[in-house]
Amino acid sequence: MKYLKLVILLILISLTGCRIDYDIEEVATPEYLGEIHEHDNVHAETEDNHEHVTDETEVCPVCGDIHDQEHVNEHDSTTISASSRHVHDAGERNHGTEWFFNQPWAAKFIWGKMIRDSIILIILAVAILLASRFRLRKKR
């Protein structure tokens, strides 16, 4: 019985596994993924692969943005922060957490998931509180 409770708890927590992360492939629409895969041979998903040197007007294969010379310099640097290795103009999509901010489908997905996760967590919290209170009364 004790272990059954633990298993139920683990399953419920895992339900709240909010996938707000860099795994675009897990949540993106097929159309969006299609766009990415077309460029797979030139640009890997991780930021660390930005070793290439781009021309002044090169189009970024992932985001489709036009990068300037500054971008090139950033890529060459080895001492700068991860977020700055791939620089876009303000308002443009960047690689990293913020990729969903200007993707309507992603935003919808994320908002719904966050609300659902929050509700599950609150229900779990209340259930644990009540169960531990019941156990306390029973024991003492």
Partner: peptide, 14 residues
């Protein structure tokens, strides 16, 4: 990672 918005802020993403 939901709390990580320093990159978009640093890059001026709304």
């Amino acid at each position: 990672d939901v709390f990580h918005i320093k990159d978009p802020i640093a890059h001026g993403v709304g």
